[in-house]
Design a protein around this nucleic acid. Structure first.
Lengths: 237, 237
DNA sequence: CATAAACGAAACTGGGCGTATCGTTTCCAT
DNA sequence: ATGGAAACGATACGCCCAGTTTCGTTTATG
C-alpha cells in the first residue's frame, strides 16, 4: 500500500493500475508474481481512481461509524463504484478495512530519530501516534480489526505486520540505543519493555475506561521508563 | 448473574426462575422492579434449567469457536432449547455472550488478601487471572466483546463493570495499602499505575504478538512495580 | 477489427440476527 | 375441575449484509 500510495501521488487520474508482486497481501494479485511491473496488459486497465476512491470512502466511513455499521454497499455508493469492483481489489470487507485504516494510520510515520535520551526518543515516537489514535475513533476500528483477527490467523499476521510491528521496531531500536549508552541495563527484557510502553495506551484505547491524552501518555511513558531502568537492588526472583 | 448462579447452586432442576430486580442488566426483566422476589407469578414459570443450559452451551461454544463463529441457532441446539427461549432471557447475542463468558471468568475470583508487600499482593491477584485467560481462548472472545462494545455504549459500560473494574478495584486497594506502608510514593498516579499493571497483559492477550505465560506475567509485574515505585530523582516533567 | 479485462448495475445466494405464529405445557386463581 | 396466564418449542418469517454471478458497456492491446 505504501508503494501504491507513492505511485498515486504522481500518477494522473486513471493511470493504468499495475499491482506489483510485493503489493500488500490484502490486495488481490492481478498478475503473476514474476510478471515485470511495466509489462502491458490486454484488456481494460485497472482504475487507480477507483482504488483511491474506495480507500478514501472506506476510511472516512470507518472512522465515522465503525466497522460493523458500514456496509460494502455504503462504501461502494460513497466511492462511486460498484460493489463488484471493490471485490476485484479486496477479497473481504476486513481486508479493505485493514488497508483503509492503514492509509490513515501510516500518514503519521514513527519518528526515527536519536534525541540522545531514551525518554526523548520514546516521547517523540509515542506522542504523535497517541495523538493520532485519540483524535478520531481509531480505538473502535482497531478493536474491530483485532476481533476479526481472532478468527483469521493470516489476517492477524498482516494486522500485526502493519499496525503493531513497525512501531515496536522503532521503540526497540530506541531501547537498544539506550542500553548501549548504559541508560538501561544491558540485560533488559526488550519485548516485555515494549509491552510496558505500548500496553497501557492500547489498554485505554480499546477498553475505553480512561482517556488517552497528552498527560496520560507522559505519565505512562515516565512510569514505564522507571520500570525499564530498574531500581538499585533488583526485585526478588 | 452472580446472584442467579448462587440460586441455582441450591435450587432443584426447573425450580421456577424468578429474576430479582437487581439481576444483571443483560438479562431481560421479567417482573416490575418493585415486585417482591418471592411473589408467585401466574402462568408457566421460567426454567432455571433452560437458563443454565443456555449459559453452559454458549460459554463452551464461545471458548471453542469465538463469537463470530457461533450462531444463536447453534447455541439453542446445543442447549436443547428453542431460539425464542434464548431471546426471552437475553435481548441480543452479545448480551448472552457477555453473561456466558462472565460465568466462566467469575469462577476465578480476584484474591483479596494482604500479603504484606505490593509485589505479593499483585502476584496473587494477577497470576491466577492470567492463567485463566491464557488457558483457553479468552483473548479471542474478549476482543470480540470489546469490538461489540465500540458500537454500544451501554454494552461497553456493562462490559467494563463486569470484566474490567472489579479487578482494577482489587489492584487499586493493593496500591493504596502499599502507599500507606510507604512502599510507593503517596502521590502515585493510581489509575496510570493500574494501566501499567494490566495493560501489557491485555496487550498480548488481544494482539497476540507474544504469549502470556507465568514468566511474562512475573517480568511484566516486576517491571511495572519498578515503574510505580519510582526511582530516586524523579524523571523530568 | 478481434479479443481481453475491468467496470457498473442489478440480481442472486446463503447465512444469521431477531421476530412472529401457534400449539403445547405448566403453573396459579377461582 | 376449569379458565386463564406465561413460558416453551418448532418453525416460518423479515430483513440485512457479505460475497458472487450475470450481462452489457468501456477501454485497452494485438
Amino acid at each position: 500500500m505504501g508503494e501504491l500510495a507513492a505511485e498515486t501521488a504522481t500518477a494522473p487520474a486513471d493511470t493504468p493500475a499495475v499491482v506489483p508482486a510485493d503489493a500488500p497481501a490484502t490486495v488481490r494479485a492481478i498478475v503473476p508474481a514474476d510478471t515485470p511491473a511495466d509489462a502491458p496488459q490486454r484488456g481494460r486497465p485497472r482504475s487507480h481512481r477507483a482504488h483511491q476512491a474506495i480507500l478514501a470512502a472506506a476510511s472516512e466511513l470507518l472512522l465515522n461509524r465503525g466497522l460493523s455499521a458500514v456496509s460494502m454497499d455504503t462504501v461502494a455508493e460513497r466511492a462511486g463504484v460498484s460493489k463488484a469492483t471493490i471485490y476485484r481489489w479486496w477479497p473481504t470487507k476486513e481486508s479493505l478495512a485493514l488497508d483503509a485504516l492503514f492509509s490513515e494510520w501510516n500518514a503519521v510515520q514513527p519518528a526515527v530519530r536519536d534525541t540522545g535520551s531514551l525518554r526523548g526518543d520514546l516521547v517523540s515516537l509515542i506522542r504523535p501516534w497517541a495523538r493520532l489514535v485519540s483524535s478520531r475513533p481509531y480505538g473502535a476500528v482497531i478493536a474491530q480489526l483485532i476481533a476479526a483477527a481472532q478468527a483469521d490467523p493470516a489476517f492477524a499476521t498482516e494486522y500485526r505486520r502493519r499496525f503493531v510491528e513497525p512501531r515496536r521496531e522503532s521503540a526497540r531500536a530506541a531501547l537498544q540505543r539506550a542500553a548501549e549508552r548504559g541508560e538501561i541495563p544491558a540485560d533488559t527484557r526488550i519485548e516485555v519493555a515494549l509491552d510496558l510502553i505500548y500496553g497501557p495506551i492500547y489498554h485505554r484505547l480499546l477498553h475505553g475506561h480512561g482517556t488517552v491524552n497528552d498527560r496520560f501518555v507522559k505519565e505512562a511513558i515516565d512510569m514505564a521508563l522507571n520500570g525499564i531502568r530498574g531500581r538499585s537492588g533488583a526485585a526478588p526472583a
